[in-house]
């Protein structure tokens, strides 16, 4: 019996998404496939699996990503699904605590990758949005509402960047004291 749940997480809340997926596993629902705002679960023993997600350096089918995935599988992690360059992994809790990163440096590197991706999306949307709105304004084109949609995406994304930077600052502070 598979259960499908539709739920939206912003990319900067990936840690909340991860926690939700772990909570689901603790309740006896293990993730078996993912899509856009779509999560598919199967029954498992409560707490049988831990779940982690990661943004890859490259596209999923890039040889480097495939090499990384087989490296992860060697350590007992199982690749259950992907969305764009995000991979979703699970590992049996009987094989020990499931973490992808064990130091601040690699956590910061991963965050940097996410920040860079969000910045490029935000920059493109702000640029297109403002350009279109100005075009409407100066050349009295017929109202181009798409510009406002881009602007809204850009502004929401800016809040996301701010949240991500705050997460990174906390990690950097800890890194000054601990390894």
């Amino acid at each position: 019996m598979r259960t499908v749940i539709h739920k939206l997480f912003f990319v900067w809340d990936f840690d909340k998404e991860e926690k939700w997926l772990c909570d689901m596993a603790a309740k006896g629902f293990t993730l078996v496939s993912v899509g856009f705002c779509r999560y598919e679960f199967e029954k498992c023993d409560p707490g049988e699996y831990g779940v982690r997600l990661q943004l890859l350096n490259h596209r999923l089918h890039h040889p480097e990503s495939q090499h990384y995935l087989s490296f992860l599988e060697e350590t007992g992690a199982e690749h259950v699904g992907s969305f764009l360059s995000w991979i979703y992994l699970r590992k049996r809790t009987s094989e020990g605590a499931f973490e992808l990163f064990s130091d601040f440096e690699s956590r910061i590197k991963h965050l940097n990758r996410i920040i860079l991706m969000v910045i490029s999306i935000v920059a493109a949307n702000l640029y297109i949005g403002i350009f279109n709105i100005l075009m409407c304004f100066f050349y009295h084109n017929e109202a181009n509402y798409l510009g406002f949609i881009n602007l809204a995406i850009g502004l929401i994304g800016s809040v996301g960047i701010w949240k991500l930077l705050r997460k990174r600052k906390k990690l950097k502070n800890d890194k000054q004291i601990f390894e």
């Binding site: 992860l72 992690a77 973490e99 992808l100 064990s102 130091d103 440096e105 690699s106």
Partner: peptide
Amino acid sequence: VRLAAGTLYGA
């Protein structure tokens, strides 16, 4: 010391 797979791979 429990090295996590992602950290180990990068290192």
